[in-house]
């Protein structure tokens, strides 16, 4: 594998302890050029992961803490009338950064949410008829509290679709937690973390991801997954064609992280839950663990080779 990707991963692993899988999924999401939604109860390291990604990748990053009273212009920026020049001047908001960390996105009003998500879709902000392009690369790493927590506005499905992956951080293992407790001051570690690559390198890796080979056997497999998801008893709504494309892109990125230039079924399976859990509508109203279980069941039912 590319040595600098390796070092990036190692750097992340020293900050986020015992979460190799989540760290790799998050990086894969960025390499595939997709936005990332991290979901879990407070205090599980959502923000730390997002910050660490920004530092390690050497990208310029900003953070917005969403609350009920955050307005769209607080994100995108606003035009201010400048007396001296007798003209409006656009003051870019925090969205004009390479990584935007949108903390607790589901605490914001729907109006604010859609402003952000529109920008994510267009890769640009329009203000007073002028379009300001966002920097490249541009990633949104949003975190959200579980749905049933009080004071939340759940994101609609159409907007959830903008995120390539949804991650659950989960609690750390006992060993990792012990290290965490004894070493302490994670936040400082993040701030001290030097950048391990550059934006240009990252863009190069994104190109590498697009070059990862997808054999016809894999395309067949992804097609089977997508089509079977539409008829499966557990799902009320299956995957959309866009879901299939997302699955393919994420699988490629995962394959690259595994040091391969071709996709195997295991890559597809590794990213499937992260890519698809927010794109599928489940028939039962189980908790998240139950939903992941039924996704696993679904993967077990679909033939890998047919």
């Amino acid at each position: 594998m590319n040595e600098s990707i390796q070092s990036v991963l190692e750097g992340l692993d020293t900050i986020i302890l015992g979460k190799q899988r989540e760290v790799r999924l998050a990086l894969a999401s960025l390499l595939a050029g997709g936005h990332l939604l991290i979901e879990d109860v407070p205090g599980t390291g959502k923000t730390t992961l997002a910050l660490a990604l920004g530092r390690v990748l050497g990208l310029q990053h900003k953070r917005v803490q969403f609350t009920v009273d955050v307005l769209p212009s607080d994100i995108t920026g606003s035009s201010i009338y400048r007396q001296s020049e007798q003209a409006f001047e656009f003051h870019p908001g925090p969205i004009f950064s390479q990584i935007l960390l949108a903390d607790e996105i589901n605490r914001a009003m729907p109006k604010t949410q859609s402003a952000l998500l529109e920008a994510m879709e267009e890769n640009a902000v329009s203000q007073d008829g002028i379009t300001y392009p966002l920097p490249s690369p541009f990633f949104v790493i949003a975190t959200q509290n579980p749905m049933h927590h009080s004071g939340t506005y759940p994101l609609p499905e159409s907007q959830l679709d903008r995120f390539l992956m949804t991650l659950q951080m989960g609690y750390p293992s006992a060993d990792a937690e012990l290290v965490l407790l004894t070493s302490g001051a994670t936040r400082q570690k993040v701030l001290d973390q030097p950048a391990l690559c550059t934006a240009e390198q990252l863009l190069g890796w994104q190109a590498d991801v697009r070059a990862v080979k997808v054999a016809s056997a894999i395309a067949d497999y992804v097609l089977r997954l997508v089509r079977e998801s539409r008829g499966d008893a557990s799902f009320e709504m299956g995957l959309s064609p866009r879901g299939g494309l997302a699955l393919m892109a994420a699988s490629r990125a995962w394959a690259l992280l595994q040091g391969r230039d071709f996709v195997t079924p295991e890559d597809v399976q590794a990213v499937f839950a992260a890519v698809c859990q927010h794109r599928l509508r489940f028939r039962s109203t189980e908790d998240r663990a139950g939903l992941l279980h039924s996704i696993n069941d679904f993967l077990n039912q679909v033939d890998v080779v047919a």
Partner: peptide, 9 residues
């Protein structure tokens, strides 16, 4: 292993 298990798994 299930039907969904690839060769590597």
């Amino acid at each position: 292993i299930s039907r969904g298990a690839g060769v590597a798994r």
